[in-house]
Design a protein around this nucleic acid. Structure first.
Length: 484
RNA sequence: GGCGACGUACCCAAGUGGUAAGGGAGAGGUCUGCAAAACCUUUAUGCGGCGGUUCGAAUCCGCCCGUCGCCUCCA
């Protein structure tokens, strides 16, 4: 049993075998930093985060590169549009790099909150203009690109493999009604590698073809190859970037090196709202900062993991609420394990819960093209079995409880990035002042309850509830937790 | 118009030939002063429709209906 991934290039599920044994070179298209990240970004980067985490869990040494696009991404057609970031900088009267920096910070802030492990390298496009120029020059020398009117275009007709990822041929593009006529291009499908900077354009660099800036597609090829080599194992990105972005990446990279650029192309699907894509252009997006006001980042992460990365995920308040409750169920299970651990006997029947069965089921799900919803289902099944064992009355031995706890930590924590039961909660014996005050209130209420002074007892419970603390009366005494 | 997906219960969502995972909601129950939480049980003879292949189909094939994505920027 080993990891299989769905490769867009071959449109099939393939066993994952990296180029070098034990090492994985992985590149994922990062954000264009001209706005706060939204739920769609979260789905993409959480999905790839889990893939990276799982590869590392399997023992691979992963080098994970994810770019930050801070120049060259045009707001419209690749010939007419303006640079998105420069656009915004004009409106706000600040330097484009200030815009890029602001939203780069914002991006990492959100990803940190989602417990997304940072990439090993986060190269900025503007910091790699030299590499991009070098690559463009090479493409011209090899006859795959041509200069026209101080801009440089890739000649799609010269590259035989153009279309192998998306299934689209240059001939078909020509038939499309929406390809703009650009007299500089030899073929309507040719794409810009370097753009001439018009008067007033702030982001500009000197080049052999005059002052200008790099096209959008070239950055990923140049940076991926700089840090990962000419052939990489995994390239990830959003489904909507399959064409033209990734198709162009393949063309320019393979034309330049003559070698296969990417072995496994992975594409994640998008978040929808009422069945429609969540996107900036549609204006139906929810930024993560807004989402986090309502739902904890962990809940958002969990919500994402409950669907497959290649499936669309439909957003709704009800769906998020459902995820929040489900996550709490897993939390409760682990909390119960830890609570019992305090008074667990050293001896007992260790065979009460078959951990190995669940561990293997979890791995089987993950090996099957990173089926996180299935893996999450295994966690629920594990939880149910543990709870059943608890309610049967027979105390589980400490060694088994520690094993269960470790299994949660490993599968839910290390692999899925879910930090179960981090919210402060407690029973007698905890250290901080908050806990000691809670102990006092609980003891006071306990006395009132013993005297059947219900109104006074409820006054404490209701007051704490308003302060964001929930009391729960259980068999083994009263516990409290924050309700956020 | 071209290319490509998808349609599974009230909602979200797994499942690519062997007789429908999981979560939420709903219902019943245990516990409780009440409550909350937790736990247990339960909830699709059915997988958009109609045909076909097969011993057997949500899964494969064909047609139809519906929704969406890409072809212009988007994770």
């Amino acid at each position: 049993m080993s990891l299989a991934l769905y490769n867009t290039l071959t449109r099939s599920r393939e066993p994952f075998v990296p180029l070098d044994q034990g090492r994985v070179r992985m590149y994922v298209c990062g954000p264009t930093v001209y706005g706060h990240s939204h739920l769609g970004h979260a789905k993409s980067y959480v999905s790839f985060d889990v893939i990276v985490r799982y590869l590392r869990f399997l023992g691979y040494q992963v080098l994970y590169v994810q770019n930050i696009t801070d120049v060259g991404h045009l707001s419209d057609d690749a010939d007419e549009g303006e640079d998105k970031i420069e656009n915004l900088s004009r409106t706000r009267q600040v330097h484009p790099m200030q815009i890029a920096e602001q939203y780069t910070h914002s991006y990492f802030e959100d990803m940190d909150a989602l417990n997304v492990i940072r990439p090993d390298i986060s190269p900025r496009a503007s910091g790699h203009v030299i590499e991009q120029i070098e690559m463009i020059r090479k493409l011209i020398n090899l006859g795959f690109a041509y200069e026209a009117n101080c801009s440089v275009y890739f000649d799609v007709q010269r590259f035989a493999g153009y279309g192998k990822l998306s299934g689209r041929r240059p001939e078909e593009l020509e038939a499309g009604a929406r390809v703009d006529v650009n007299p500089d291009k030899r073929h309507p499908g040719d794409f810009a590698l370097w753009k001439r900077a018009e008067k007033g354009h702030i982001m500009r660099w000197p080049s052999p073809w005059g002052e200008g800036f790099p096209g959008w597609h070239i950055e990923c090829s140049a940076m991926a190859m700089k840090y990962l080599g000419e052939s990489i194992d995994i390239h990830g990105g959003g489904l909507e970037n399959q064409f033209p972005h990734h198709e162009c990446e393949i063309a320019q990279s393979e034309a330049a090196t003559g070698r296969p650029f990417v072995r496994y192309w992975l594409h994640n699907n998008m978040v929808t709202v009422d069945g429609r894509k969540m996107g900036k252009s549609l204006g139906n997006f929810l930024t993560l900062k807004d989402a986090f006001v309502r739902w904890a980042p962990q809940v958002v992460r969990f919500f994402i993991l409950q669907s497959h990365y290649r499936s669309t995920l439909d957003f709704s308040e009800a769906a998020l609420e459902g995820a929040a409750k489900g996550l709490e169920r897993l939390n409760a299970a682990r909390r119960a394990v830890r609570d019992r651990l305090r008074e667990a006997p050293d001896q007992g029947s260790p065979g009460a819960v078959d951990l190995e069965k669940h561990r293997l089921a979890f791995l089987a799900a993950m090996n099957d093209d990173v089926n996180t919803p299935q893996a999450v289902a295994v966690l629920f099944e594990l939880s149910r079995e543990i709870n059943a064992a608890f309610s049967s009355g027979t105390p589980l031995p400490a060694a088994l409880l520690r094993e269960i706890d470790a299994l949660f930590e490993s599968l839910a924590g290390t692999v899925l990035g879910l930090t179960l039961e981090q919210a402060p909660s407690g029973r007698a014996g905890d250290q901080p002042l908050e806990s000691r005050l809670m102990d006092l209130l609980i003891a006071l209420r306990g006395t009132l309850r013993a005297q059947k002074l219900w109104p006074l007892a409820d006054m404490i419970r209701n007051g704490l509830s308003e302060a964001g603390v929930t009391l729960e009366d259980g068999k083994q005494g009263t516990t409290w937790k924050r309700t956020s």
